[in-house]
Design a protein around this nucleic acid. Structure first.
Lengths: 207, 207
DNA sequence: GGTCGCATCAATCGAAAGGTTGAGCTCTCG
DNA sequence: CGAGAGCTCAACCTTTCGATTGATGCGACC
């Protein structure tokens, strides 16, 4: 019997997951959590944690995942979320998630992924898997740390001059970085670069 | 008996909604739709449409809402989504949505909202309602529809020239809109405007 | 029936951003 | 140690953007 912990802040989603799992005789719901903290506290009760990435407030699902996998004899964490940006996926994988599913997955795929996760096998949504191999095999389009840093400040609305001051650079250097960023992203303006990088999950609009 | 149409591209959410509605004797599920087109086609079967705003592909929930409310003797549309930015809310309301609920709503609130929507009464999530009164009472800092539209294209990385073509305007008009946007947001560049508007939830980085 | 907000457009000017070329520096890796 | 990648900077030029001023038409509201 596989004990599952449902960690999601949406009552309706929890209800849907309950309904899906109820039909599976080898799966049982050990507990539910509506916050990341709650999920960490109840992680010991389960073999598999179904983890959302965004909660209304408090720590993120990625943080909770990291905390759970750091426990002694931790359950496997299967991320189940709506978001599929590079930033989200990488954060979750790096936090120790065993699998990564999207909420538009079919119920059959979900229960299959739970069973896989229970024995430590990883299950990835098709698009997610493609994105990962894409990135590890072909780091073209990957920005350097400095480029990402500069682009992040651009996304915050700073001018080249402001950025140069913030980073103790000359404007020429900031431009150089941006020129390379534009080339890598296939764009030709700062706003387009921000849009492209956001779309690819290279940077994240912080709210 | 209130006939409900569930329009959501996530099987798990649909399952959760089924579970919630099953417990209510005066509510019945007339149909389900996994795409916006499907929702429009099946709208005639229902008294209330539970409409998600984002579908994997194809038209958005807002567009579907507009199409449905344009039907003869249309059902009431109750938007049920995860997103609560000004842009989403306004688009839905302008499209003719009767209510706007967030997916972190409790089941009781949801069924209450459905009953309200069935008789044409509007039901808004607390945060959404606050945002609307905020905006109508104190329109300082609020962007007009056209300004929001232009700013959205700026956020997509388009140049003023591209925007003017997209909207069948002159560049001068685009600039005029942006000048007013900058003034309202207290910024002085397009990237800063995008950052500020994103932070305030006026626009959303769409992917 | 006038006022106000909104949307539309024009012309101009200085500032900022983008493109190009070229170069020096440090670090890592084989 | 040489090659390559990443980071740094300079000079120059073109394009775009932002600021300003001013104008027209339209609908809403009192």
């Amino acid at each position: 019997m596989i004990r599952v912990l449902i960690a999601d802040d949406h009552p309706i989603v929890r209800s849907g997951l309950r309904a899906v799992l109820r039909g599976e005789p080898d799966l049982t719901i050990a507990a539910e959590a509506a916050t990341a903290q709650d999920a960490i506290a109840k992680a010991g009760l389960a073999d598999v944690v179904l983890m959302d990435l965004r909660f209304g407030d408090g720590p993120s699902g990625a943080q909770a995942t990291a905390a759970i996998t750091a426990l002694p004899d931790p359950p496997h964490v299967l991320v189940l979320t709506t978001y599929d940006t590079d930033a989200d996926i990488l954060a979750a994988i790096e936090a120790g998630a065993t699998g990564y599913l999207l909420k538009d997955a079919e119920p059959e795929d979900l229960v299959a992924a739970i069973r896989a996760a229970a024995v430590g096998r990883s299950a990835l949504a098709p698009g997610v898997a493609a994105r990962l191999v894409d990135r590890t095999r072909n780091p073209v389009g990957a920005l350097s740390a400095r480029e990402t840093e500069v682009l992040g400040l651009v996304a915050d609305g700073l001018s080249n001059l402001s950025i140069s001051r913030r980073l103790h650079l000359s404007q020429a250097t900031v431009k150089s970085h941006l020129v390379r960023v534009y080339a890598k992203l296939g764009v030709d303006s700062r706003t387009a670069a921000v849009a492209a990088a956001t779309a690819r999950g290279l940077i994240r609009p912080h709210r």
